[in-house]
Design a protein around this nucleic acid. Structure first.
Length: 288
DNA sequence: CTTGCCGGGGT
DNA sequence: ACCCCGGCAAG
């Protein structure tokens, strides 16, 4: 029965083309629970929460008939965002990541066309596209997991993979400049700071890891990647803490640039240091 | 290499 | 509580 419902939902035009107005969060269906009922094969079945998915097995998903770009270029690393089964309760939109653009369209093809014409200056038909447009827009679930969207965009690759993701002619500083991030959040501003609050479900913020990850996004971690798309939001939400750890996202706060007692007074005036510095703790005199 | 400081001790 | 330091990450 549930399968039938999912099937009918997944084929519904509402998911792909309709305006946002139809959004409704489906009371009684906790979205985070859906993470636990993913089809087998793509995810390991650990119940410890330490090991939530395996990119290698993720790649084994069947290749598609004729994707518009070489799968090894992006889909190899990022999955198949437009073809994988989508969460039934989410309305999907597509937002341009180009600096100070932020245009939101309801279809991926429309967004690709927008990027191609407006930003890349190409007139070529989609068939000739090399898929570069995919790098300049992101997929938005207009639903409960806006944070995990952001997190997944910060997830360039599994830590088990050693190769960096392929960014064709990607102008990182421009694409990832801070102004780009707030604009991503605009249509999703259901609460003052969605990046931090939307994850604040009983599950995700249980150990505050997710919140600290949120803080980290504002810092240097924001430069990790701007790629859209990608890993299943359910997976990400289900194991944000483990994800943060596994990605090497240490929860240690980034080093401040203020000179501390040690630097100011020197090793041979330790008696002038604040006690915290003397004890090799975070300096209390020269705060960041 | 140096610096800042977390985590984990000892008293 | 106070004090110390191994060891790590970042620069």
């Amino acid at each position: 029965m549930a399968a039938a419902a999912l099937t009918s939902l997944s084929t519904s035009p509402l998911l792909l083309g309709a305006p946002v107005t139809a959004f409704s969060p489906e009371p009684g269906l906790e979205p985070w629970k859906e993470a636990l009922v993913q089809p087998p094969g793509s995810y390991s079945s650990s119940n410890s929460g330490e090991w939530c998915w395996d990119l290698a097995s993720d790649q084994s998903s069947p290749s598609t008939p004729s994707p518009p770009l070489p799968p090894e270029a992006a889909h190899f690393l990022f999955g198949e965002p437009t073809l994988r089964k989508r969460k039934s309760s989410a309305q999907v939109m597509f937002q341009c990541l180009w600096k100070s653009c932020g245009k939101v369209l309801s279809t991926a093809s429309g967004m690709q066309r927008h990027i191609r014409l407006v930003h890349l200056g190409r007139q070529a038909e989609p068939e000739q596209s090399d898929g570069e447009e995919d790098f300049y827009y992101t997929e938005l679930d207009i639903g409960v997991d806006t944070l995990t969207d952001r997190l997944s965009s910060l997830t360039p690759v599994s830590p088990t993979a050693s190769m960096p993701p392929v960014f064709p002619r990607l102008e990182l500083p421009e694409l990832l400049e801070p102004p780009a991030l707030p604009s991503l959040l605009q249509p999703l501003t259901l609460s003052p700071h969605p990046m931090l609050t939307s994850v604040d479900t009983p599950q995700a913020c249980h150990s505050h890891h997710a919140c600290q990850v949120g803080e980290a996004i504002g810092g240097s971690w924001g430069q990790i990647s701007g790629r859209s798309g990608a890993l299943q939001r359910n997976e990400v939400r289900a194991c944000v803490p483990a994800l943060a750890t596994r990605m090497g996202m240490s929860l240690r706060k980034p080093r401040g640039d203020a000179k501390k007692c040690r630097k100011v007074y020197g090793m041979d005036h330790r008696d002038l240091w604040c006690t915290a510095c003397r004890w090799k703790k975070a300096c209390q005199r020269f705060l960041d």
